[in-house]
């Protein structure tokens, strides 16, 4: 078991992590969360705009966390990180996409209210 004696801090996946990166990732996600919370509690933006803004905030926060905290990139010495990313993207699309489709269909059938397109026919 020769590799057991190696210094784990010399591994490439450890080498790319810096405390600056971690703090930056933490700061970016915290700020975005605070912005979203403020927008929701202050009712400063109309509902649809609010939905778009906090979705955008969440998207940027995910990117920051993937890059700064999880160190997932597509470099060569982190090939297993790339595998994880390749596995993650379809799952993300499946869960979010199919949930979206399911709920839009559900609302079409169950949330029939005056004035909604469902009432027209």
């Amino acid at each position: 078991m020769s590799h057991g004696h190696d210094d784990p801090t010399l591994h490439p996946e450890v080498q790319i992590s810096t405390s600056r990166g971690y703090f930056l990732g933490f700061a970016i996600s915290s700020i975005l969360m605070l912005v979203a919370t403020f927008l929701v509690t202050s009712h400063a933006v109309p509902p649809f705009g609010l939905l778009m803004v906090i979705s955008a905030c969440a998207g940027i926060a995910i990117m920051a966390q993937i890059y700064f905290l999880l160190h997932i990139d597509i470099s060569e010495h982190n090939i297993w990180n790339t595998v994880a990313l390749v596995l993650f993207i379809p799952l993300f699309l499946i869960t979010i996409g199919l949930t979206w489709w399911m709920f839009s269909q559900l609302y079409l059938h169950t949330m029939i209210m005056p004035g909604m397109p469902g009432m027209m026919h």
Partner: peptide
């Protein structure tokens, strides 16, 4: 396994396509 979870609530009313 990731594509089938909705069969736990077919009767929810999401309609024929879903």
């Amino acid at each position: 396994s990731w594509l089938v979870w909705l069969h736990h609530f077919f009767t929810m009313g999401a309609g024929p396509y879903v």
